[in-house]
Simulated scan of single mutants.
Amino acid sequence: MPNPPATAAQPRRSALLRLGALCGLAGLSGLASSGEVLAAVAAARSGAAYQPALLTRDELQLTGVLAELIIPRTDTPGALEVGAHQVIDHLLKVCSLEAEQARFKAGLARIEAAAQAQGGRRFGALPAARQVALLQAMDRGRAPFDADGQAFFRQLKGYVAFAYYTSEAGATRELAYLPIPGGFQGNYKLTRSTRNWAI
């Protein structure tokens, strides 16, 4: 399935960024300071061969597939390429309570069970169109999923947005970035391809 053009991905990525900032990581706020969260992100991106911290290898691989479907590669790297799944795994291990960790794993298991029931294969082996259809059903809380599945998918999108936009590519290639911002520019001309700004 071809990737959507960059202009089509812009509003979706903007919405995901806001979702992650506003509510996607609400579960982390009471457990870790911003410094601890940033330290966890840095550890997951250390460059060494990544060893899963909480998820099994199969769960980590599935999280990577899901992350790439949420933020695919366009003219900028996708979530899988920036290691969003590794950051999510590390954040869950370091910054989440056991109950939240269990809910996340149960959400992944729910996706795999639905894929097996409808396609006889693991989610990662399904055709791209079937993967998208299952995630759309989950996002809407429709069969074979329910409200718990919908809540998990919304949480996952928040994690993916946070992991993506704290990566170098997300902050400097997907978003516009000025290391030393200039002065005020009134009447700034915007086009359909103007990128949002990193914060």
Rank of each mutant, 00 (worst) to 15 (best):
L126E: 03
R173P: 12
A48K: 01
G186W: 13
S29M: 09
A109K: 15
A39T: 07
L178V: 07
R45W: 02
V94A: 10
L178D: 15
A44P: 15
E98V: 11
A84P: 02
F162C: 03
G24H: 02
T63S: 15
P77H: 10
R122W: 03
P144G: 06
A161L: 04
L25V: 11
T74S: 15
G83A: 04
M1Y: 14
I180C: 05
Q10P: 02
T166G: 03
G183D: 03
R110S: 13
A106H: 05
R154A: 09
Y165P: 06
Q61N: 11
A114N: 13
G64R: 01
P4F: 04
Q136Y: 08
Q61H: 10
L134I: 05
A114Q: 05
P144W: 01
E100R: 11
A49H: 08
Q61S: 07
D148M: 04
Y165I: 00
Y50T: 02
G182K: 05
A99G: 02
T74Q: 14
G107N: 04
C23D: 11
L16W: 05
Y164N: 01
E68G: 02
E100S: 13
A48E: 10
G149S: 05
R73W: 08
G141Y: 08
V94T: 11
P179N: 11
F162G: 01
P127V: 02
Q10N: 04
L17G: 13
A53Y: 05
L60N: 04
A115H: 07
L19V: 07
A129Q: 14
A9V: 06
A9M: 13
M138N: 01
G35Y: 07
S193G: 06
A44W: 13
L55A: 01
G78I: 01
H85I: 00
I199Q: 06
T56V: 04
E81I: 06
V41P: 00
T74Y: 09
E112F: 10
G149N: 08
F153Y: 13
A171P: 03
